[in-house]
């Protein structure tokens, strides 16, 4: 078996030590740090990306909250606006209504006064005419001279008799 022939033992050991030490040093100082740095770079990149994604998510949640808040606020504003304008309109309407009522009442009062006046005037006229007619009738039918005073009284008596 050639393996047990010690002729080349020393040579094999020598070259093993040379090649193995070279490989060990080269990998230790050059290759492995390179691969390690690549792996580290990738890990950092992944971690950074995850971090960024988390921050973005938090920001998005904040914005969502703001939107919700604003929506809520504007809803409340809407409700209060509608309430206010309803109240205002109701107030105005009732004001207008009371104004109109007042005017109408005044007009009614005026007309009532006019009517009253007219009524009084007509009554007076009727009264005077009755007075005239009575005077004329009496002077024609009889020669009795009745003064105005008496006529007045009797007319008043007659009228009150009619009324009762």
């Amino acid at each position: 078996m050639p393996q047990l022939d010690p002729e080349f033992f020393v040579s094999q050991l020598f070259w093993l030590v040379v090649t193995f030490s070279f490989l060990l040093l080269f990998l230790w100082k050059v290759s492995l740090p390179r691969i390690g740095s690549v792996l580290e770079k990738r890990e950092n990149k992944i971690n950074n990306d995850i971090e960024t994604a988390k921050q973005l998510q938090i920001e998005a949640e904040k914005i969502q909250d703001q939107i919700d808040q604003k929506l809520h606020n504007s809803k409340e504003q809407n409700i209060s606006l509608i309430k206010n304008s309803t109240v205002n309109l109701q107030n105005k309407a009732s004001e207008e209504l009371s104004k109109l009522d007042n005017e109408l009442n005044k007009k009614i009062e005026k007309s009532a006064k006019v009517i009253e006046n007219n009524k009084k005037k007509s009554l007076k006229q009727i009264h005077e005419q009755i007075h005239e007619i009575t005077k004329l009738t009496l002077s024609k039918l009889s020669s009795v001279q009745i003064n105005d005073q008496e006529i007045e009284e009797s007319v008043a008596n007659a009228q009150s008799g009619v009324r009762h």
Binding site: E7, F8, S11, Q12, W15, F26
Partner: peptide, 19 residues
């Protein structure tokens, strides 16, 4: 005797391939 043999060559090739 530290002759460069076929064994040494294989080791050298191995190291070269790896590096």
């Amino acid at each position: 005797d530290i002759s460069f043999t076929n064994s040494s060559l294989a080791m050298t090739i191995t190291v070269a391939v790896i590096t």
